[in-house]
């Protein structure tokens, strides 16, 4: 041993180290217990942390599973560019399945007048799981995001229809995860279950992780709709009578370009963002129109097979 050990102080793990070791443990359980796992990678801040944790869990080996992304066709272009570049840098196999193709093939059927691709991601994801016979998909969902998610397990069992049954979940005791599934059934694993928005940004700072530019403040044309600033683009044209404002904004959470609200912010660094979150008075998903549809919007989507 090269250095003498000073007492106690050295054997303390802080909250980020705790969350890190817990997430690595979950990632390794997936690699060891499943035959065909996949890692859901969108390029968003949570999946960026997930990727770093996967690098740490398996090195010096490469991450032993492909990346999967469901492209709604309504993603922010910055996000997709970032996603493709990161996958390339890591030498990972990136599988992209598009909602558009799923619609063309009749796998996903929009209801009349349905513009949002949010619901249509579900059949697209389930078809991809079926196509590649994935038995476990790792996602970056966190329990602090939403109250249905607050009740979900690290290993979330899905039946052969991809459905989550919130009333009949497997108890998770100590760090013993029951990962067993029968053919056709699958699992979703959420290593970041216990992370908060603040933890994610603290980890990004600690690890010096690169994040897509839209998380930082930039000028953007927005319209005010349902109490939010929505970015103006080809899918969100200003309606009659709406004023287009050029604002300095950033996004806190990234969904589709038609449902992601921007927040006015001068934050240009990760430290700025951390300070902003510490002082924030609304939750992260307060800027996501998809969650505002009803009190149980997320619960209903998850029961249908959502991420």
């Amino acid at each position: 041993m090269s250095t003498p050990v000073s007492p106690m102080q050295n054997y303390h793990i802080d909250h980020l180290e705790y969350l890190e070791t817990e997430a690595i443990h979950v990632l390794r359980e997936v690699a060891a217990e499943f035959e065909r796992p996949a890692l859901l990678f969108s390029g968003g801040k949570d999946s960026i942390c997930l990727l770093r944790l996967a690098e740490k869990a398996f090195r010096p080996s490469a991450i032993p599973m492909p990346f999967l992304n469901i492209d709604t066709g309504h993603h922010f272009p910055e996000l997709n560019a970032f996603r493709d570049r990161r996958a390339k840098e890591l030498g990972a196999k990136l599988i992209i399945r598009k909602v558009e193709d799923a619609i063309a093939r009749g796998i996903a059927i929009p209801s009349p007048g349905e513009v949002s691709r949010n619901r249509l991601q579900i059949p697209t994801l389930l078809a991809a799981i079926d196509e590649f016979q994935f038995d476990c998909c790792i996602g970056g969902a966190r329990r602090d995001e939403e109250k249905a998610r607050a009740k979900e397990r690290f290993f979330s069992f899905r039946d052969s229809f991809g459905q989550w049954d919130p009333k009949n979940q497997r108890p998770e005791i100590w760090n013993l995860y029951n990962t067993r599934v029968n053919p056709g059934e699958s699992m979703r694993a959420f290593p970041l279950s216990n992370w908060t928005e603040m933890d994610v940004w603290e980890y990004i700072r600690k690890e010096g992780l690169e994040v897509p530019s839209i998380y930082f403040s930039h000028p953007r044309c927005c319209v005010r709709r349902h109490g939010q600033w929505l970015p103006v683009n080809h899918l969100v044209p200003p309606k009659k009578g709406e004023q287009v404002a050029e604002l300095t904004v950033r996004v806190r959470t990234i969904g589709d370009i038609i449902s992601t609200g921007c927040v006015e912010s001068p934050a240009v660094t990760v430290d700025d963002i951390l300070a902003e979150i510490a002082a924030a008075r609304v939750t992260e998903r307060g800027s996501r129109a998809d969650d505002k549809a009803s009190e149980a919007a997320m619960e209903d989507r998850k029961k249908a097979g959502y991420f």
Binding site: H15, R143, D144, E146, K147, A148, A150, K151, P166, K167, Q169, S193, N194, T196, M198, D199, E295, A296, E299
Partner: peptide, 29 residues
């Protein structure tokens, strides 16, 4: 209603499953 996140819980006014919540003070998470 903050922690009783599922529809059945709000309807029946009970907590049917483990709900996890997160908060922090300057001293601890």
């Amino acid at each position: 209603n903050l922690t009783d996140g599922l529809r059945a819980e709000r309807e029946q006014g009970i907590t049917i499953d483990v709900a996890y919540r997160y908060f922090a003070t300057p001293h601890r998470k």
